[in-house]
């Protein structure tokens, strides 16, 4: 398949930009240069969010360099996002240990990242009939568990289960939650989303950086009841460089019933439902 000279030029420019980000990010030491690493990641994410040329993306996706970039940037993003959350969570715990008065989670979180998630989940919940759905599971809560806390504060859900297969993340988030609230409505479990039994659940939210999205969906189909709903965050265009997508080989027992597109983050959220027949 041949592409035009202009398309080649655009593709080369894109690859050049991404190579620049890759080289700069590779130089940073995660600990010593953390602030610089974070700033460069912000610039990189700003850059990929701006790219909305479908044709260019399609060509890039088929280029030889795409898989290598994908491997590299996904690792960087996972490190960036989870470290950012760990910093916020440990910071909040420190505050709650030194401050005896009640701490409001969202007031004390300085990260823009949390505000973005907050907006996103608020819109995602509009796709769901919250009167009928009382049990939620979040797959991949990370150390900050902000989605779990959002569900706790903004819904009447009877049970909100948070899963993560990372022992440090689950420990930090459970300690952080314990330091601000004491509630039986939230249950955190050290478990891979691809191993959990979803039989009692009404809605499952799958995190962006969940590594085994397709396997999680298969497991929901295998163990979840008919009609169980899933909110799946999917990357658009160059956001594919940092998050995994799952809709291309989606389990045939799942139907897409709704979707929202977030222009600011170039992400979309799909509402899937396990068929009732």
């Amino acid at each position: 398949m041949k592409i035009s000279a202009k398309e080649k030029k655009d593709l080369n420019n894109l690859i050049k930009e991404l190579t620049g980000f890759q080289q700069r990010l590779s130089k940073f030491d995660y600990v010593k240069d953390r602030e610089d690493f974070f700033k460069e990641m912000e610039r990189f994410k700003g850059f990929i969010r701006k790219q909305a040329d479908e044709k260019l993306y399609k060509n890039f996706e088929k280029s030889k360099s795409f898989p290598e970039f994908k491997r590299f940037f996904r690792k960087m993003e996972e490190y960036y996002e989870r470290t950012l959350e760990a910093i916020e969570a440990v910071g909040l715990m420190t505050q709650s240990r030194t401050n005896s008065s009640n701490i409001n989670f969202f007031q004390h979180i300085s990260s823009k990242h949390v505000q973005v998630t907050y907006e996103q989940i608020k819109n995602e919940l509009n796709m769901i009939d919250l009167k009928k759905r009382k049990r939620f599971v979040m797959v991949g809560i990370g150390p900050l568990a902000e989605s779990v806390l959002f569900l706790f504060e903004n819904t009447d859900a009877l049970k909100i289960v948070g899963l993560d297969n990372n022992q440090e993340a689950i420990h930090i988030s459970s300690e952080m939650i314990k330091s601000i609230i004491n509630t039986p409505r939230i249950e955190l479990i050290h478990c891979d989303g691809a191993d959990y039994d979803y039989k009692n659940e009404d809605v499952v939210l799958v995190a962006n950086f969940c590594a085994r999205k397709s396997k999680v969906l298969d497991r929901i189909v295998e163990t979840g009841k008919n009609g169980i709903q899933i909110i799946l965050r999917e990357p658009v265009f160059l956001i594919n460089l940092i998050y995994r997508e799952a809709t291309s080989g989606i389990n045939p027992r799942l139907a897409i019933v709704d979707e929202i597109y977030f222009d600011k983050t170039k992400a979309k959220s799909l509402l899937l439902e396990k068929l009732d027949y």
Partner: peptide, 12 residues
Amino acid sequence: NQEAIYMAGEIT
């Protein structure tokens, strides 16, 4: 594990 690296890095 990125959380572990963050905490170990913060300590040292």
